[in-house]
């Protein structure tokens, strides 16, 4: 019995690499990209604002699964550039996830900026801060505090969303547990997979609690 559990666990752990890779790549890249999109959405250059709005609309308005299919299966069919866009499964998954999550983070940060008292910009201005310094020293630290609970929520959602990469054939935690359940005709692999997701999310929850304490003032 326990031998059986141990072997299920060790097989599932082979899939966790993909789960964690997609998770880590997405967090590390989509947060800065989301921040850039936020700045673009508030730019003085109108076309930049329109493009950002359109981007966020398209990404939030279509399923992540469709976006995954589009990047992995769809891009190679594009005329002219298609042949150069044959991506590996992991690369395609990473790209689709980063592009998707950047749009959500953009909206979270934009909401955070909207919550900041205009008086903060005015105080910075009369004290001689330039636009860049005002952003870095005055606005962003306050925005992060406001945005952190939403960022935590989105990060936790991301852990579970990584299960979607199985649809383009990556053998992640989800895909391996499904295969094991099918071959063993036993539900145990699902329960163990659920336990692994819960452990990951528990750790993230604790991490964000710490971060929120740190960002409080």
């Amino acid at each position: 019995m326990f031998e059986n559990l141990a072997s299920i666990f060790s097989i599932l752990m082979q899939g966790i690499g993909y789960t964690l890779t997609v998770f880590a790549v997405t967090i590390v890249l989509s947060i800065p990209l989301g921040l850039l999109l936020t700045f673009a959405s508030r730019s003085r250059i109108a076309p930049l604002r329109w493009i950002t709005r359109a981007y966020v609309f398209v990404i939030r308005g279509t399923p992540l699964m469709l976006q995954l299919f589009f990047v992995y299966f769809g891009l190679p069919f594009l005329p002219v550039v298609g042949p150069y866009l044959k991506l590996g499964r992991l690369a395609a998954a990473n790209i689709a996830f980063v592009l998707n999550y950047a749009a959500y983070f953009c909206e979270i940060f934009r909401g955070g900026l909207l919550s900041i008292d205009p008086g903060q910009y005015e105080a910075a201005k009369v004290l001689g801060f330039g636009r860049f310094r005002t952003m870095i020293q005055i606005i962003l630290p306050q925005m992060i505090k406001v945005a952190l609970p939403s960022v935590a929520n989105e990060t936790i959602t991301l852990v579970k969303d990584t299960a979607l990469v199985s649809v383009i054939g990556l053998s992640d935690l989800m895909e391996l547990s499904k295969k094991l359940v099918n071959s063993m005709v036993d539900v145990t692999p699902y329960i163990i997979a659920a336990g692994i997701y819960l452990v990951l999310i528990f750790a993230l929850t604790k991490l964000f609690e710490k971060l929120e304490k740190k960002a409080a003032y």
């Binding site: 008292d117 008086g119 903060q120 009369v126 001689g128 330039g130 306050q142």
Partner: peptide, 20 residues
């Protein structure tokens, strides 16, 4: 404009201290 205003300071009704 910043250069012209460099010798001026302002105190606001709602203080506008940096809370962080």
């Amino acid at each position: 404009c910043r250069q012209v205003c460099r010798g001026m300071g302002m105190v606001f009704q709602h203080f506008n201290l940096f809370p962080h």
